Simulated assay, not measured.
Amino acid sequence: MSKKYGAYICQGCGIGESLDIDKLSEKASDEGFAVKTCPALCGKDGLAILKQDVAGGVNALVIAACSPRVLYDAFRFDGCIVERVNLREQVVWSHPRATWPAPTEEQKDDETFIDHVQMMAADYLQMGLAKIKKVELPAPYKLETLSRKILVIGGGITGISAALDAAKTGYEVTIVEKEPALGGNAAKWRKQLPTEYPFEKSTAPVIQTKIKELGNFSNIQVKTSTVVARIAGQPGDFTVTFKQPGEKIEFDVPFPLPPEMKVDESGKELEAEKLHARYLEYNQGRQDILTFDPNGEKFGAVVLAAGWRPYQPQEGEYAHLGFGASPDVVTNAQFEAIAAAGKIKRPSDGKEAKSVVFIQSP
């Protein structure tokens, strides 16, 4: 990139009153920069100066004004390198002249006198001038091969919805579902929350409608009874290995050693070489994690919609509520199954329940 430099020093927000702008301009000019000052660079006139110079070919701008954390969009110019020098917060506001007085006329003629505030501003400006000479615009990384296929992991309501949206925009989509049928937990619902006004009553689940809709798209492929064994690569160029649930293949992801295999008989942690040897033995038959599957399928993006599992309380976890002791104390998933069968009947005796208590556990 051939650079054309410009340095712009703002005088607003107390900068002009606290600092010698002419000396700062001289420093930038000595470094070969075309220098311009303005009462307020963020104002209409100041921005007009910047835009005019950019249009004239300036593509490396040092803007000595306020913090780079503010007015980011105002001082951003496409195709240009912009270095912000913070004279306002880091110099003028943090070192007010009430505490750090400006030099008197007599002190200005004294070569031994140091105006620390002015020196700080000059140092920050010098660093900005030096930095922009070293910085280059980043070159965008472009993949040699870019896949436009999308993999959706999970064939529940979320995965199917994502697949349909992607297919409608023209992408090729593959849905992977470990179960023999699509739907996930949504297929077990009796009702679902309303999605349309007036949002007053539960509605029939839409999952079956969405499953049928998949058949309208030739660019959607469905793989049931299938799981992902390994994903390798990067966005735009993923290599994915599929397998059947429970199947063991060479491209299964290697497992880390369990804690008990990281120590010797005395409980002392193994040395690195022995750990590595034991790791290889533990993962015998599996390819190294950095090895790509030559027969893997290519995808450009992966949508993870693996769903959720109903919570299963541990034995005795909710004993104080009667769970585990009384068959009539159930989880929300168990209650949904009872409700889906018709009337709400007690598991203990099959009689219709007269009342139901819901307990929301934190």
Score class of each variant (00 low, 15 high):
G6C: 07
A7G: 01
Q11P: 02
G14L: 08
I15Q: 09
G16S: 08
S18K: 07
L19A: 02
I21Q: 02
D22W: 10
D30W: 08
A40V: 07
K44E: 14
G46E: 10
Q52Y: 00
G56N: 15
G57Y: 07
A65F: 03
V70N: 09
L71I: 00
D73A: 12
R84E: 00
Q90G: 00
W93E: 09
W93Y: 05
S94D: 06
A98L: 12
W100K: 02
P101W: 01
A102R: 05
A102D: 04
P103T: 02
E106T: 11
E106F: 01
E106H: 03
K108L: 15
D110N: 15
E111K: 12
D115G: 04
A121C: 04
D123M: 10
Y124F: 14
L125P: 03
Q126K: 13
M127E: 15
M127L: 12
K133Y: 01
K134L: 14
K134N: 08
V135T: 13
E136S: 13
E136Y: 04
V152A: 02
I153P: 01
G155S: 06
I157T: 04
T169H: 12
T169K: 15
Y171T: 04
V176A: 15
K178W: 02
L182P: 08
G184N: 04
G184C: 07
K188M: 13
K188F: 12
W189E: 09
R190E: 11
P194D: 11
Y197E: 15
Y197D: 12
P198E: 11
F199M: 10
T203C: 14
A204R: 14
K210V: 00
I211S: 03
S218R: 13
T226D: 06
T226E: 05
R230C: 10
I231M: 15
P235W: 02
V240R: 00
P245F: 06
K248L: 11
I249P: 09
F255S: 14
L257K: 01
P259K: 03
P259H: 01
M261Y: 10
V263W: 07
D264I: 06
E265T: 07
G267F: 07
L280P: 06
E281I: 00
Y282W: 15
Q284M: 08
Q287K: 15
I289C: 05
L290Y: 11
F292Y: 13
F292G: 01
K298C: 00
V303K: 05
L304V: 15
A306G: 09
G307S: 03
Q312K: 08
P313F: 01
G316L: 04
E317L: 06
Y318L: 13
H320W: 13
H320L: 13
F323G: 00
V329K: 08
T331E: 08
A333K: 05
A333Y: 13
F335Q: 06
I338W: 04
G342M: 09
G342V: 10
K343Q: 14
I344C: 12
I344N: 12
G350T: 01
A353H: 01
S355Y: 11
F358V: 14
I359V: 15
